[in-house]
């Protein structure tokens, strides 16, 4: 897949603000960011309410996803362009989510909201309501989603990529450093996981590094390109960013995102955990 099939520039978005084929969607960790300001014409998806089941810990089901996109005005043939804060963590998560439910034409705004702001491009607080559609989703494509048992079975067998910060990997922090650290689960990482922080895949302005740079980064970290891969982080959003880099940019087959990630794995009873900066033994 060519890079331009999955990534668009801020300039491309500016030139397509009035293109009715393009549906621009902001997805942020800070779900109030959109309400303060957004790119003109962009709609909002709230990852906590729109993309999560409100009772059990799981995604919305196929029917709920269809109802959501129909109400938001996304059509099956829309070119969906996702962007957000935090270097596109949650936009990449939404990208992976759209792929999970089979949306064909979805792209990320390279650099996300940060690049747009650093370019000093215009933001607005005008509300946006698109005409509703009748959206039909596919069944979940589980070839890109890992569950806890897949992770345990992958120890010492597949590439496990821990994309959290080095201090979270080693067990010195339990959450990203912009969040409070009180957590219930144990610290550390899945044994044999290599540490490749998501941030290595991005430049300071939030854009993705070149494919040559990405390949060098994963190779240096001990990543085996002949093996299947599971990426994880704390709640599955930073690992979506790495899933995007590995599968959509580098074209690696058989890459799964473990959305349960450390908040699930670190709370499981009886599973192995490694501490410290090294991957550890199987």
């Amino acid at each position: 897949m060519a890079r331009e099939d999955v990534l668009v520039t801020t300039q491309w978005v500016e030139e397509n603000l009035d293109n009715p084929q393009v549906v621009l969607i902001e997805v942020d960790e800070d779900t109030s960011a959109y309400d303060r300001s957004h790119i003109r014409g962009a709609i909002k998806l709230d990852w906590t309410t729109d993309l999560q089941d409100q009772v059990r810990r799981d995604f919305v089901n196929k029917a709920q996803f269809e109802a959501l996109l129909s109400d938001k005005g996304v059509a099956n043939d829309s070119t969906v362009v996702l962007y957000g804060g935090n270097n596109n963590w949650f936009a990449a998560y939404a990208y992976w989510y759209f792929k999970l439910y089979g949306h064909q034409d979805v792209k990320l705004l390279d650099g996300g909201r940060k690049k747009w702001e650093l370019d000093a491009r215009e933001l607005t607080d005008e509300p946006v309501k698109l005409e509703s559609t009748t959206y039909t989703a596919s069944e979940q494509d589980l070839s890109i989603r890992a569950f806890r048992d897949d992770v345990v079975a992958a120890i010492g067998v597949q590439n496990l990529v821990d994309v959290r910060s080095p201090d979270e990997f080693a067990g010195r922090l339990l959450a990203p450093a912009h969040l409070p650290q009180e957590q219930a689960q144990r610290a550390g990482h899945v044994p044999t996981a290599v540490s490749v922080p998501w941030s290595k895949a991005a430049n300071d302005d939030g854009t993705f590094r070149s494919n040559d740079e990405l390949k060098a980064i994963y190779t240096e970290a001990g990543f085996d390109f002949s093996k299947d891969t599971i990426a994880y982080c704390r709640i599955g959003e930073r690992s979506s960013h790495t899933w995007f880099a590995l599968q959509e940019l580098l074209g690696e087959p058989n890459v799964k995102n473990y959305d349960g990630s450390w908040t699930e794995y670190g709370s499981l009873v009886g599973v192995p955990i490694a501490l410290g900066d090294e991957p550890g033994e199987a």
């Binding site: 804060g85 910060s165 080095p166 201090d167 922090l173 990203p176 450093a177 912009h178 922080p197």
Partner: peptide, 17 residues
């Protein structure tokens, strides 16, 4: 503005607007 927190080795740890 965006403020990034880098650890003692210069590795990215977090970022906030």
């Amino acid at each position: 503005a965006y403020v990034r927190l880098l650890d003692k080795s210069g590795e990215f740890t977090a970022e906030v607007p």
